[in-house]
């Protein structure tokens, strides 16, 4: 009976993981199509419905026309063009609301039906706290692009992405706890430690990716393997103090995004090869091939996105695929790390 309950709760959490993943993709599309600033209000309840008639459409379009993005960048945009950018931001927000329901309603049901113990319920509450925080940061981020600058603050965009990653990792961990049988063999800590380090590297890389997207830094150096002909860009630490370069300098952000990518691929290959000669859990044995495949695919997608950015626009499809692959690799690394967790000497 307990096994059945665990399975049901695990599937619920896994659906949540899938929905968060899809939300990240929607976020990427929203960013790349520059749709994020199209809805200038934050109405949690009344915003659920889109404009339903011409007068409502005019109202939201007029509100957008007062934004710096319209005034400075999209002057003369037609209503049908506006509807397109509105669509992506609307779907992104609608999906967030849906996520809230998908987590909340079954959660209450599971508590009443005692599928979840009280101590576990407290643990799962962290998902709601993070989710609430994420929604708030999302709005703060959008607001940053409605006042003066016609773009969202890259730091806030990155924080939004990082919180999404945290929510994703946490939910996945909880799902794995419910769905994966506990490992009973003892395995050397060496590999698990290395996977943990890989996980940290991927999170750092996602942060750099967020900054890169926020600053549209791909457009500044759309060449590979060099950065506009230089292996190390001259402007790498042009800003003073040095730490400011990691927040505001496109050369620094893109350079370290590349370097971290090289380290990650090196690390993945290292873990892959090293694990061949070491005792590893069954699931890991199968999963490591996928890890290697995802890492290689991710590098190729990154380079392709960069190359196609030469035309002055980041290609939406490849940009989104690059982001999706990053989150798949993140998911897989969390799982690989987890499969080493439970051991009895």
């Amino acid at each position: 009976m307990n096994e059945h309950k665990n399975k049901v709760v695990g599937i619920w959490l896994l659906i949540g993981v899938g929905m968060i993943f899809f939300q990240v993709i929607l976020g990427g599309i929203t960013r790349l199509t520059e749709s994020g600033l199209s809805i200038t209000e934050w109405d949690v309840v009344s915003g659920t419905l889109p404009p339903l008639n011409a007068s409502q459409w005019n109202e939201v379009f007029e509100a957008y026309k007062a934004s710096p993005q319209y005034e400075l960048v999209n002057q003369g945009m037609s209503l049908s063009q506006f509807k397109m950018i509105y669509f992506w931001e609307y779907v992104h927000r609608l999906w967030a609301r849906l996520l809230g329901f998908v987590f909340l309603l079954p959660f209450l049901f599971f508590i009443i039906k005692r599928y979840i113990k009280p101590i576990e319920a407290l643990k799962y509450l962290s998902i709601f706290v993070l989710g609430g925080l994420q929604a708030m940061v999302g709005w703060i981020m959008v607001k940053s692009g409605l006042v003066d600058m016609p773009w969202v603050a890259p730091g806030k965009l990155t924080l939004h992405l990082l919180l999404a990653s945290a929510l994703y990792i946490l939910t996945l961990r909880f799902a794995l706890e419910k769905l994966t049988p506990k490992e009973t063999k003892y395995y050397p800590k060496f590999l698990r430690g290395n996977i943990y380090f890989l996980l940290i590297l991927i999170i750092v890389q996602i942060s750099l990716g967020g900054m890169l997207a926020g600053w549209k830094a791909a457009l500044a150096y759309p060449t590979w393997p060099t950065m506009n002909g230089e292996w190390v860009p001259t402007d790498l630490f042009a800003l003073k103090p040095s730490w400011k370069n990691f927040l505001e300098n496109k050369a620094t952000i893109q350079f370290f995004h590349r370097i971290t990518a090289y380290i990650i691929i090196f690390y993945v290959v290292f873990i892959y090869l090293k694990s061949q000669s070491m005792p590893v859990p069954k699931l890991f044995k199968r999963g490591r091939h996928i890890m290697l495949l995802l890492a290689i695919l991710q590098v190729l997608l990154g380079i392709t996105t960069l190359y196609l950015s030469k035309k002055g626009e980041v290609p939406v499809l490849f940009g989104v695929l690059h982001q999706a692959c990053a989150f798949l690799l993140l998911m897989w690394t969390v799982a690989l790390h987890y499969w080493f967790k439970y051991k009895e000497a």
Binding site: P68, L72, P150, W151
Partner: peptide, 14 residues
């Protein structure tokens, strides 16, 4: 500079 985006340029010009 070469790396500055249309948004940044429009923002400053305004």
């Amino acid at each position: 500079g070469l790396h500055q985006t249309k948004e940044e340029i429009a923002f400053i010009l305004n």
